[in-house]
Simulated scan of single mutants.
Amino acid sequence: MSVAKDKTAEKEGGLYETVKVIIQALLIAFVIRTFLFQPFNIPSASMVQTLLVGDYLFVSKYAYGYSRYSIPFGIVPIPGRIFASQPKRGDIAVFKLPKDNSTDYIKRVIGLPGDEIQVTGGVLYINGEEVPRERVADYVDVGPNGREFRAPRYRETLPNGVSYEVLDTEENGLFDNTGIYKVPEGHYFMMGDNRDNSTDSRAQAFVGYVPFENFVGRAEVIFFSIREDTPIWQVWNWPWAVRWGRIFDSL
């Protein structure tokens, strides 16, 4: 065999190996994204201060088992849920908006199937019992325009002991006084931590009760965070724009 043929064969072999490695990497990424962890970013302020606009987080796909919404584009018509594990009160979960079954939402699990949920004077009630909340220091943030934003903040503790902080930015807000919501079987009641800036299960016409089938996964950890006024691709601004203290915060 000539030297030229040897070089051609070597190039073809090298190209084959490169293509094989790329395909294997894509398959591994697909498996991880579909069955283990999926990245999400936070586009709105509905979960402030727990989650900020510009946070990037991993959601565990296996936490609640798998439904057709676990598979990209819903290409596998899984009936109901397999390997199901029920969401716990206080979990931060990603789900498909029941109104269109395609838009990703992230909220906190507040009501379980059969629960009665009500908000009175901004205070949460579960099954007729007031959920304790303790006033803590105001939440303070500085916007892109340099203006300071300050909001009353409370530490809320659910009946199972899960504790987190919520904001109450508006007295007598739209959903500060509600009727009683009776959570249907197989559904969950979701709320944002930024109570006056969250469209959630209290807005029955827009979100309402979330079917278990619509759950995508549970938020686990923030793996990256950058100020909302800085695009992630502007790497030259990272030293000043990245919120270094939030990286690897567990949820």
Rank of each mutant, 00 (worst) to 15 (best):
A4L: 15
A4V: 11
A4K: 12
A4H: 12
K5F: 05
K5C: 07
K5P: 10
K5W: 04
D6T: 05
D6P: 03
D6L: 12
D6E: 13
D6M: 15
K7W: 11
K7N: 15
T8H: 03
T8N: 15
T8D: 13
A9W: 13
A9H: 09
A9D: 14
A9Y: 09
E10T: 01
E10A: 07
K11L: 11
G13T: 06
G14K: 10
G14P: 00
G14F: 07
G14C: 00
G14V: 08
L15M: 13
Y16V: 14
E17D: 14
E17L: 12
E17P: 00
E17G: 04
E17R: 07
T18W: 12
T18D: 14
V19W: 08
K20F: 09
K20H: 06
K20A: 08
V21T: 15
V21P: 08
I22C: 15
I22H: 03
I23S: 13
I23P: 11
I23F: 15
Q24A: 15
Q24D: 15
A25H: 11
L26G: 13
L26I: 15
L26A: 15
I28L: 11
A29V: 04
A29F: 05
A29M: 08
A29R: 02
F30W: 11
F30G: 06
I32M: 09
I32E: 14
T34I: 04
T34H: 06
F35R: 06
F35D: 06
L36W: 05
L36M: 10
F37G: 10
F37L: 14
Q38Y: 03
Q38F: 03
F40E: 02
F40I: 04
F40H: 04
F40D: 02
F40S: 04
N41P: 02
I42T: 05
I42P: 01
I42S: 01
I42G: 05
I42K: 02
I42L: 06
P43H: 05
S44W: 00
S44N: 08
A45K: 01
A45T: 01
S46T: 07
S46G: 07
M47I: 02
M47W: 02
M47R: 02
M47K: 01
V48F: 02
Q49K: 06
Q49E: 08
Q49I: 00
T50V: 07
T50S: 02
T50H: 03
T50P: 00
L51W: 00
L51K: 01
L51S: 00
L52N: 10
L52D: 11
L52V: 00
L52R: 03
L52S: 03
V53A: 01
V53F: 06
